[in-house]
Write a protein that binds this DNA or RNA. Structure first.
Lengths: 337, 337
DNA sequence: GGATCTTTATGAAACGTTTCAACCGTCTGG
DNA sequence: CCAGACGGTTGAAACGTTTCATAAAGATCC
């Protein structure tokens, strides 16, 4: 049952193991005749190269790790697609891990990736400050921060300006005449959440129109959390209720939208809604969702390229911080007829 | 820069490498005093176990592969979540691969997984007949077919009865009075597509009401393909145009819905729509989508458990074929007021 | 026809673990 | 007081590759 090794292939083809290895790695260095012989021995035995042995001896793998906050969020799957495309073009394989916004889980995956000796790691961390990640970098595994701004000098990062995104969303709502605005999102350890809120808060104060930004903290950025936030909102006294909600992402907004509609509140008439990410489903929602658009696939692609660059250049590499600009997309959920 | 090995840890702790290995694998077999000593040597050196070496020597990894047709499809991410949960509970790690409905790509991933010597593979194959997959099974890697029925005796499978699902959808549309019905989906190599169509076709013929089921073949089961199918539909003569479309999945249906709405056709009045999968976004769509619900996470969970079982039992394992029943969910997209 | 290169193949030494037979004290029961 | 068991530790072999110095056999040149 055990898969044939290079040794058995060598025996069948009457060559040394070194030659078999050469056929695998530098086929041009072996004469056509023997190459043919080795190749047919391989297929006769159903040889499959043992990546563990190869990695152990050569000291390098062909794998990179990608750790995202939520695989079920279309934003991240689009990002993952970008990463995968770039990796594939360089003959790299991506191990996709889902931290599910859970610290310990994230840590387990990081440990595993380091034990696997992946060539590098792309990560959207659960917490901005992460000593464990720091250690991994110190031990020599390149890490690129994904969708997360940083000024740290020991890594690259690719992000979209979330503070600006938050500002755009809030300015739009203010322009629509809203004064009691809420920001929904959480947990507050996630930098995207705090950045978006910060941008919105700044816009609200600067407007000097007596507007306020209250906080609806959610346990996660999911559809379910959105529905739950909707319940909370419905419990508050209508006279003091916010007239507009800016959600930290589209999933949250879609969940909120569904809960509000189910309970008879109309969007945008009773409550205006703005999301974030502009996932495909935002435009297709019951009430098409205004949202802050990010270049999702591009984000992943650039992050992967940065990592590949760092892997290639190693010591001579200079870390870079790429920041994209978000774009506000107006749809029905935030403009009263 | 190189990460410390077990040997250096042993040296620092003044023990043999065997003892260090024991601390790692059978800590109860080593005295508390030395264990402590070894542990602190490890943290001092920043030791990280080399999984390649471990896998090579022990002959087993702690990884399973999951190959899906489309990571951006919420159906598959939900399935993946189920798989991951079950795997995690058994200390296994999942390598998630996205074939993107592309044969060669699928093949590359399968090769990689086999080279990695994963303990087993969960796959929703691009084509039902797959000689390469067959070889992998023959060489001894357990494979479980995911969301794909089979009667093959050399593997387990977990699926939802797609023929029944197709039938439910068609029967519903027939009951609503539709006679010119279309089935949208593709490519036809994917068994889910053909099964769903077959079920629908059977229902249509059995009804004996002079109804017909035309085919709108799409290149993939994506949002974009749905929009494209919408264009096609709009080009056909309104008098001969189908009055209802049953889409092979929800993404397709949502794309179609968006295109139709954008071009001024009303759903369900001008064209009724039924999807498949009942992803979260189906209920939240502009026109809430009728759909065929599948137990997504459960599907993944059971598949993973079957695989784990097979990995455990090995030779004594008896393959099983689990089939779930789908459920039709009626919403506005298919019932005229 | 010898010297010098090239081309091709070889054999053995790593890589970092796990595994296991063997060993050494110390304890236990008779 | 001895035989045997037991808890703890050791040392070396093995896993399947890659890598590299070396060798053998032709080819090329003067």
């Amino acid at each position: 049952m055990a898969i044939a090794s290079i040794k058995e292939v060598a025996q069948l083809a009457s060559v040394s193991v070194g030659t078999v290895s050469n056929v695998l790695n530098r086929p041009e260095a072996v004469s056509p005749a023997t190459r043919e012989r080795v190749l047919s021995a391989m297929s006769e035995l159903g040889f499959v190269r043992n990546e563990s042995a190869r990695a152990l001896r050569s000291g390098r793998t062909r794998t990179m790790g990608l750790v995202v906050l939520d695989v079920t969020n279309p934003f991240f799957t689009d990002v993952a697609k970008g990463v995968e495309g770039a990796a594939d073009a360089s003959g790299m394989i991506v191990t996709l891990c889902n931290s599910d916004q859970d610290g310990p889980r994230e840590r387990r995956y990081l440990d595993h990736l380091e034990e696997q000796r992946v060539q590098g790691i792309l990560i959207t961390p659960v917490e901005a400050r992460n000593p464990h990640l720091e250690q991994i970098i110190d031990r020599g595994t390149p890490v690129v921060l994904l969708d997360c701004r940083t000024t740290k000098r020991n890594r690259c990062s690719v992000a979209v300006d979330d503070v600006l995104g938050g500002r755009l969303a809030a300015e739009h709502l203010l322009a629509q005449g809203h004064r009691r605005i809420a920001f929904a999102g959480g947990p507050m350890t996630i930098s995207q959440v705090t950045d978006r809120r910060r941008g919105a808060a700044a816009a609200v104060t600067e407007a000097e129109v007596g507007a306020s930004l209250t906080l609806i903290e959610t346990p996660s950025l999911s559809f379910a959390s959105g529905r739950h936030a909707g319940e909370q909102l419905l419990e508050t006294d209508p006279s003091r209720r916010p007239t507009a909600v800016f959600c930290a992402n589209d999933l949250l907004a879609l969940g909120l939208l569904q809960e509000l509609s189910a309970r008879g509140l109309r969007v945008p008439d009773d409550i205006a809604l703005v999301g974030y990410d502009d996932i495909d489903y935002a435009a297709a929602a019951a009430v098409p969702l205004s949202s802050v658009r990010q270049p999702r696939e591009e984000l992943g692609k650039v992050a992967a390229q940065l990592l590949l660059e760092e892997i290639d250049e190693r010591d001579s590499h200079r870390h870079r911080h790429v920041v994209f600009e978000p774009e506000f997309v107006v749809r029905e959920s935030s403009v009263r007829a």
